[in-house]
Design a protein around this nucleic acid. Structure first.
Length: 118
DNA sequence: AGTATGACTTTAG
DNA sequence: ACTAAAGCCATAC
């Protein structure tokens, strides 16, 4: 497992209830602004083993990115139950629900991750 | 080791 | 506003 992966996991795990982040955002905070797709892969592989709030991750337009119908509905329900409101067009208002990690907190977090990283 | 694969993003037409 | 194409790079096989 790479450092990038651990950072992504840590960032996702730190998303509070009722908030969402985009793939690109997460990738950028983990050090690779163009690695949105890796975030997807990590979500796929890690959400099975780890308990990640994968439902709090959406695409850049604030829409649910998942393709599977059942999972998409499940994500929708999770978000609604957390207080995330969907707009008429089925997207989320990112100006209201986007989570921006606190820089200091993030730095500290990443430092401790780097330590435990082999 | 080499190739294929994405629950994406951004830019260009 | 919509579609097309290229870029990205850690996993899975």
């Amino acid at each position: 497992m790479t450092l990038f992966t651990k950072q992504v996991v840590a960032i996702i795990a730190a998303i509070p209830e009722g908030r969402v982040m985009t793939y690109g955002q997460i990738a950028a905070h983990a050090g690779s602004p163009r690695a949105a797709r890796q975030v997807v892969r990590i979500l796929h592989s890690m959400s099975r083993k780890e308990r990640l709030p994968w439902h709090r991750v959406v695409n850049a337009k604030g829409e649910i990115a998942i393709t599977d119908d059942e999972s998409r509905t499940m994500q929708e329900n999770e978000l609604i139950s957390e207080g995330v409101a969907f707009q008429m067009d089925g997207s989320i208002d990112l100006t209201r629900f986007r989570h921006e990690p606190d820089p200091d907190c993030l730095l500290h977090h990443l430092a401790s991750i780097k330590d435990e990283h082999e």
